[in-house]
Design a protein around this nucleic acid. Structure first.
Lengths: 260, 260
DNA sequence: CGACGTGTTGAAGGAGCTCAATCTAAGTGG
DNA sequence: CCACTTAGATTGAGCTCCTTCAACACGTCG
């Protein structure tokens, strides 16, 4: 990791929080004024380690990261994937001891904000606090969906589900289109996210291609039949709790987002 | 459900919140003064349904409840189990639309508190708000552990893990001892919690018995060899973020709680 | 160029599933 | 108090989806 003083600003975080709660000028300024330190990290670098007691909360300004934990047998479960604007360890602000790892999935720029500053902001400015709380709640909702994904869906559905979720979230963060994007994970990482082996993920992906649902070349994903893929993956956007800038849940979403 | 005016008080919630954050007299009184309505529910009654837009947050005063969601293929994934004092849908206070179901696992007493009152309390009294936020964060941590449980552990470990977690949480809530308790789920429900079939859960439980790790009779569980069961279940209490009344994480825990 | 990380494919085995029957305990009505 | 009912626990046999192991292909990068 190399350190450098901060040209990149906290705008991505502001952008995200504004989706969750209406913030006035002062709220917005307070967020941007948060003290922070910027670091660039490489693919594979750890941002937080299980058992750490971080004094700073990490915020992803660009690139991708993922959260994961190891199990006794040596396996690894990827718990979520994060993109620009995500607060990858807001929970450590209050929880003190990290219960899982956060690792960079690509080169990334990360802002580290003192936990104390986060707490003061959250409770000094209720609207900001509400937005942060909202964010952690959406995080929890995604965790629940992933539990259901690995617990009760077969391989084809698990894989399809993640492909859909990723497209929607990239789109929602203005980072790509829902049906064509660069997938930031290797198949080994994909496997650890869906609770399968890399071999079987590979076969499942190939099968989706063969059936004309997707079209992949290396890491680039193109979803050819969104509706059918979403159906196979049992995907609906409800659990993402997407809101427009005015904070109306699910308002005016394009048809492909919702499932009847 | 039958309604009745509230003899039972919100004490269990207060008890829980005090573990998460130091609250002064006024904070405590404010919690107990929260407006609420008490309902008794029977086993199987729904407390919240997916897609509901609840105006009240449910709080479990006694009995057990569980959260779950259905997947496309008809299967069901149980996401968490709750006991006295748990706020089973705090998230709906902010998220508006429920993304999963909450159902009673036994006869239970539930308090319904207006969402507005919760929000006012959370942001009017930062220490209370922090405790509530903390609670939702621990909730998220448990979700993560469950994702890893169903995603990356084999049947024996999954089952052992849940048996350990349940004992510790009951003990922590002063509802039982960690090694001997009444398990509130049928094997079918257990199966939906660990992503297995009831048949295989049954075989796995019997195997644990046969190996002298547990001793079950109907629903009552007795853990004979805690250390070995915890080892098999890859269980450690870290992810539960247990704190003592002074808010010191993991302080003075009995030896059986921690794993080196 | 050679080496390494990643993707792809085949073949064989196994953990957990499905289907189906039987057993048990806890009601429930008479 | 007992026959009857029923939900849940238990057990067996066969099958399948996914894993394991192993080899090979491909692209990138020092």
């Amino acid at each position: 990791m190399n350190h450098l003083s901060g040209h990149p600003s906290l705008t991505p975080m502001l952008r995200k929080l504004m989706k969750w709660s209406a913030l006035d000028e002062e709220d917005q300024q307070a967020i941007l004024d948060l003290p922070h330190e910027i670091r660039r990290v490489d693919r594979g670098d750890y941002i937080v380690r299980e058992q750490d007691k971080p004094s700073h909360a990490a915020l992803l300004l660009s690139g991708f990261a993922y959260r994961h934990k190891f199990v006794g047998s040596g396996g690894r479960q990827i718990l979520s994937v994060h993109m620009s604007g995500d607060m990858v360890d807001l929970q450590n602000t209050l929880l003190r001891t990290a219960d899982h790892n956060v690792q960079a999935l690509s080169r990334a720029v990360v802002a580290f904000i003192p936990c104390r500053a986060i707490k003061e902001l959250a409770f000094g400015r209720p609207r900001v606090g509400m937005a942060m709380w909202y964010d952690t709640l959406v995080d929890g909702s995604i965790h629940r969906e992933w539990t259901a994904n690995v617990g009760r869906r077969d391989a084809r559905a698990r894989v399809a589900h993640v492909l859909c979720e990723f497209g929607v979230r990239l789109n929602d963060g203005d980072l790509g289109s829902p049906c064509t994007y660069e997938f930031p994970m290797t198949q080994e990482e994909f496997a650890d996210a869906v609770g399968l082996t890399p071999v079987h993920v590979n076969r499942t992906l190939k099968a989706l291609d063969r059936d004309g649902l997707t079209d992949r070349a290396h890491r680039s994903v193109s979803i050819k039949q969104w509706d059918r893929l979403a159906e196979i993956g049992d995907f609906s956007t409800n659990y993402l709790h997407i809101q427009d800038e005015q904070g109306r849940a699910g308002a005016d979403l394009p048809a492909w987002r919702m499932r009847p």
